[in-house]
Every structure is written in structure tokens, then in C-alpha cells.
Amino acid sequence: MSTDVERAAHAFCPRCHPDPRPGEVLIALCGARHPYYGRRDRPVNQCPACVRLASAPVYACGHPGG
């Protein structure tokens, strides 16, 4: 997964959410809405759908992917 992508429970497009604030509700790559609470790189917390979608060449939002 790209280091440019938020890697908490869900992954987010860094172009749609370039500077998220703590607690801001973002739309994850898998479509889930999830509050942002900073970067966490613990694989055990990763959403399997987001992990798969984060490696796509283009995200659903139309921005280039990882």
C-alpha cells in the first residue's frame, strides 16, 4: 500500500483529503465513512477491501492510485 494513503482501519485518497483534521469524517477507498485519527501503520487494523483498492492504478474518485 502506498505510504501516501492513510493506513488506519480504512485507507483514504490523499488527493481528496490532503490535510484531514483529527475527527474529520472521510470517505475511505472502500466507501465507508470513517473519522480520521492520524496515521497508524499497524497492518492488523487495515480494512481488507481498502488494502486491495489502495493498489489500484486509479481510485473510485478518479484520482491516480497507489
Rank of each mutant, 00 (worst) to 15 (best):
R39I: 08
C13V: 02
M1L: 12
R33I: 00
G23L: 06
V51R: 13
R21G: 09
A32E: 15
R42D: 05
A11T: 05
E24Y: 00
E6V: 14
P20G: 01
R15K: 13
A32Q: 15
R42C: 08
A56P: 06
G23N: 05
R15G: 07
R33S: 13
P43C: 04
R40C: 10
V44Y: 14
R39P: 08
A54E: 01
P43V: 00
A32V: 12
R42G: 09
S55F: 11
L29Q: 06
N45F: 14
G38P: 03
E6G: 13
P14V: 11
A11M: 09
R33L: 06
R33M: 06
V51H: 13
P64A: 10
C16S: 02
S55Q: 15
H10V: 04
C50S: 09
Q46K: 14
P22H: 07
E24G: 10
P43W: 03
A9F: 08
P22I: 12
R15C: 06
L53V: 14
C30D: 04
D4Y: 04
C61S: 04
V25T: 14
Y59P: 00
R21L: 11
G65Y: 00
Q46H: 15
H17P: 02
P35R: 08
A11W: 02
V58Q: 08
C13F: 02
P57W: 10
P43E: 02
E6N: 11
G23M: 12
P20D: 03
R40K: 09
V25A: 04
P64F: 06
A11N: 01
A56T: 07
C13D: 02
G65N: 02
E6Y: 08
G66M: 01
